[in-house]
Design a protein around this nucleic acid. Structure first.
Length: 474
DNA sequence: TGAAATGTTGGGGCG
DNA sequence: ACGCCCCAACATTTC
């Protein structure tokens, strides 16, 4: 009886999984195997919460496999030796996996391919369009989002036929044993982000189907962090509990059945976010130096202040700017942050505090359930104005104005920074302006219950403009 | 997927 | 009626 290994990495799903499908096409029995790679588990960029989400996701995948007659085999160790041993033990004829694009993943896969006695077959599926197949006419990669997205959209829409159904039944050899997952604190946000493919599918359906689907309001609602206007699918896409291609299909279908052009625009703008995701994978693939430093290398020379006390205040949500602090506490509390808020806090760290964007990038990786190298790195470089398609360096968010625009009544602020709950609306974005009597009435003494601003925005703005000006060539 | 600084215009108050 | 100032509202430029 022929056997193949399905090497599960960040594709924790049975639906629309080309690696799984290819394994099943070529073998009567498969071994779904997740390798706990010490390099990743001990990385300082992998937070406990994301690890817990992964482990719970593996348990969910195991349950889904068992419902189909299979199970998940977990092995611990270096992928090359672990998989070579498993291949020998099981007499597998090949190993199938979904292609990944980070420099680490690519070199790991090369090492694994060399170590295996059988072929390592890599399939598409992490992105919607292949990074190496979406190039400018001159054969070079895109470095600006808008033309990239234009070319991306010029491809035919994703069709339902492309989405591979989950296998109904599969068979795993009895003789193969796994190891238990190491002890791990349980996922404290499991109620908010239940791990697993079933939840991912349910969310996608809820977000994209019906005339009143949230996707239709996305273009307007997505900018207001107090609203429930986004899909909150990012952790699921991060671990492949949902295929990005299936998400794109849902967006196309919503566009097609949109009742009005405005509704259609909502679905289009959600699709644009999926295209951003593809774009940043493409950047990571073609320009791997972004992992270490700025896409535009000149900005590596910016003289950051890197004040550790300021960084600690930013991490803790204690900068004195309510919108920033609410966002940072949301991140620390639930392992997720609204995208509008991500842009604001990133701008604040880099432009107001003059701290190296890589400090913020790393903190996000440690805290986010959806922490993903390509998207996170791309987003940070964009915010810092040092990356592809960068916001010009002088595009500096005003931390107060961002709150006033996108959380006018301070609903989001009050939710995440409860010491400000009783602050009147006219002071909610600038509580330091409250007269003493108002502070007493609101039970919020500035400097005691809530910090005074740690920097003056107007001063900080001039400082960062000067710091960037110094490294510019033109 | 900004925001601040600067420039322009036009209405109204007022001597 | 006129010129002047103020300033809001909007437009443009600049970082």
């Amino acid at each position: 009886m022929s056997t193949a290994i399905w090497w599960v990495r960040r594709d924790l799903r049975l639906t629309d999984n080309r690696a799984l499908a290819a394994a099943l096409e070529n073998a009567a029995q498969i071994i779904p195997c997740f390798v706990l790679d010490p390099h990743l588990l001990n990385s300082s960029r992998v937070g406990e919460r994301r690890k817990a989400f992964l482990f719970a996701g593996l348990a969910a995948l195991d349950a889904d496999l068992r419902a189909r007659g299979g199970r998940l085999i977990v092995r611990c160790g270096e992928p090359a030796t672990t998989l070579a041993r498993l291949a020998a033990e099981s007499r597998a004829r090949a190993v199938y996996a979904e292609r990944d694009y980070s420099p680490y993943a690519r070199s790991r896969d090369e090492t694994v391919a060399r170590a295996l006695p059988v072929p390592l077959v890599l399939t598409d599926g992490l992105t919607i369009r292949r990074p190496d197949a979406l190039l400018k006419d001159d054969g070079t990669p895109y470095t600006v989002f808008t033309p990239y997205s234009r070319r991306w959209r010029s491809h035919p829409p994703v069709t339902p036929q492309e989405i591979l159904p989950a296998p109904r039944i599969l068979s795993v050899p009895e003789s193969i044993a796994g190891e238990p997952l190491p002890e791990q604190p349980r996922l404290d946000v499991a109620a908010l982000f239940p791990p697993g493919e079933a939840e991912a599918q349910a969310r996608l359906r809820r977000f994209t189907t019906g005339d009143r689907a949230p996707i239709y309001a996305y273009a307007q609602a997505r900018d207001f962090p107090a609203l429930d206007g986004t899909s909150m699918l990012s952790p699921y896409l991060r671990f492949g509990m949902l295929s990005a291609r299936q998400a794109a299909l849902a967006a196309y279908q919503a566009m097609e059945s949109a009742p009005t052009p405005e509704h259609c625009a909502g679905a289009e703008s959600w699709l644009t976010e999926l295209i951003w995701r593809d774009f940043y994978y493409s950047i990571l693939y073609h320009f791997p130096h972004v992992v270490q430093g700025c896409f535009h290398r000149a900005y590596d020379a910016v003289a950051w202040e890197n004040n550790p006390a300021h960084f600690a205040a930013w991490c803790a949500g204690a900068t004195g700017y309510p919108f920033i602090d609410a966002a940072m506490r949301q991140l620390a509390t639930i392992g997720w942050m609204h995208n509008r808020a991500r842009m604001a806090v990133a701008s604040f760290l880099v432009k107001d505090l003059l701290i190296d964007w890589r400090w913020g990038e790393k903190w996000f990786m440690q805290m986010l359930l959806d922490g993903d190298l390509a998207a996170n790195n791309g987003g940070w470089q964009w915010s810092a104005g040092v990356g592809t398609d960068a916001a010009p360096y002088f595009r500096i968010f005003n931390p107060t104005a961002q709150g006033q625009k996108f959380d006018p009544q301070g609903v989001y602020i009050r939710r995440w920074a409860p010491e400000l709950r009783l602050v009147p609306e006219r002071y909610i974005h600038e509580p330091w302006r409250m007269p003493r009597s108002e502070q007493l009435r609101a039970g919020c003494i500035i400097g005691q219950d809530y910090p005074a601003p740690i920097v003056d925005h107007a001063v900080a703005r001039q400082r960062v403009l000067e710091a960037y000006r110094r490294v510019r060539s033109d």
